[in-house]
Amino acid sequence: MKEKLEILLLDDETIVGNRLGPVLEKVGYDVEVFEDPKKALNRINEKEFDIVITDIMMEDVNGIQILEEVQKKSEKTKVIIITGYATVALAREAMEKGAFDMIAKPFRPNDLRSVVAKAADSLGYKK
């Protein structure tokens, strides 16, 4: 098992990445931040992350597609969906397709930290 949990964070809002990167690094995770979903997909294909955090509404590629790609690549990777458009239908679709959890915008950094911690827990990491 790796020492540090490896996380990929994808959101087309620059500020989200800028703020959440340090937020997660501070609690001891290894974070790679992406704004462009295509680049993120390439990276996912290169490397197996423990946790993928992705926005759902983005140009070109949406969060559900990212989720499907991640699941194709590795079954154990946990996917956390961030959404500004928290509709029930979307939440159900994401959960049915195997997302670990969903977090609706706007949220506090600690909200994300606790969801990530839960995911880490389920992966067997103890913090």
């Binding site: 959440l20 915008k105 949220f107």
Partner: peptide, 10 residues
């Protein structure tokens, strides 16, 4: 929600 989230996180 997007700008609000950005403001909150910042």
């Amino acid at each position: 929600n997007n700008p609000l989230n950005n403001i909150m996180l910042t």
